[in-house]
Amino acid sequence: MVDEQGPSDLDFVRRIKAGDEQAFEEMVRRYHARVYSLAYGVLRNPQDAEEATQDAFLTLYKKIGTFDESRKFFSWFYRVALNSAYSRARRRQSLPTVAIEDRMPKFLGDGHFAADVPDWSVKIEDEVAARELAARAGEFIAELPPAYRDVIWMNDVEEMTAPEIAETLEISIPAFKSRLHRARLYVRQRLSEVSNPRPRTAQAAV
């Protein structure tokens, strides 16, 4: 099959199943960057991400026979990649994840905000401050429970589409949206905390 995008993933999958090494190399070229980025999102360390990428392609090579051709290849393979990253993460000391409920916005019974909402958004106009916040945001994403971390990383950092993410994680679009929003609310709250280092006692004294 020849179309504007060249051979499809499925063509390559079938050729790999038939033992075609060139097709395998083509898949490595096509997917290595995305797989590495996904692994990096979980592991946050270049060496671990590289090893997880190798594991993922080894799994591709060994398990391609079990791939169900009625599914989309990328969603199967991104799951393989995430699983490789998670199994590596389990082997090293894993970061404790947080209770995201504690960092959701709080409202009064009448639906108004329960406390002041400081506006720190002007900070990101300063390039140095913005880079610092970005580095912190990466750490805050890493604290999230995996169900939230994968969604926000794939959507906001990797810029994958909603259907791609929902299919990869085998969740519905409404579940995807709910997780994405809560993950962003969490990261926003954490960024607020590091952007407004006013001591609580000073606030209470006003």
Binding site: F24, S37, E50, T53, V117, G138, V157
Partner: peptide, 30 residues
């Protein structure tokens, strides 16, 4: 404003730097 600033901050995390010889490393490994 801060929800938007959060989104813009996350965009700055991109791109993850891909090691230059990664594709070759993966193929030799496999």
């Amino acid at each position: 404003s801060t929800y938007r600033a959060t989104g813009m901050t996350l965009k700055m995390l991109k791109p993850t730097e891909i090691p230059p010889a990664l594709a070759e490393t993966v193929m030799s490994f496999v």
